[in-house]
């Protein structure tokens, strides 16, 4: 009983701590990391020293100042420069397989192992 109580307390503190921590600030560095530098070879805006990267950094700063959220900034960027610029592909019909297939594999695999073993009990 003592053990269960202990676990309960832990979990309680853990979640309360988490909810206190959840602040909603937009971190420009994080956004720079998730945008591709279009004139470089496979680098993000954050890693690049190119003029293009400098410009995008300024645009991101402006958008944050306007009060845009992270997601809004990404969709602004992909509207303007194409989907190539965002490292996180949007969830839409074209990309649905990309996002869903891994989990189908995961679920199907688990189901396969489970049913496979059940038959042979």
């Amino acid at each position: 009983m003592k053990l269960n109580l202990l676990i309960f307390i832990y979990i309680f503190i853990f979640f309360s701590k988490f909810t206190f921590a959840a602040e909603n600030t937009v971190d420009p560095n994080q956004i720079h990391k998730n945008l591709r530098c279009l004139v470089c070879q496979g680098q993000s805006i954050s890693d690049s020293n190119s003029d293009f990267a400098q410009t995008i950094k300024l645009v991101v700063k402006d958008l944050i100042d306007e009060g845009k959220t992270e997601e809004e900034i990404y969709s602004f960027m992909s509207d303007k420069y194409g989907d190539w610029i965002v490292f996180k592909p949007q969830f839409n019909i074209q990309n649905s397989l990309l996002w869903i297939l891994p989990y189908i594999v995961l679920i199907f695999g688990g189901f396969f192992i489970f049913s496979f073993l059940k038959k042979r009990q």
Binding site: R36, G82, W84, I85, F87, K88, P89
Partner: peptide, 10 residues
């Protein structure tokens, strides 16, 4: 014809 990037966030 639509080029997408699949990077770390994915």
């Amino acid at each position: 014809d639509n080029k997408i990037s699949v990077g770390p966030p994915f």
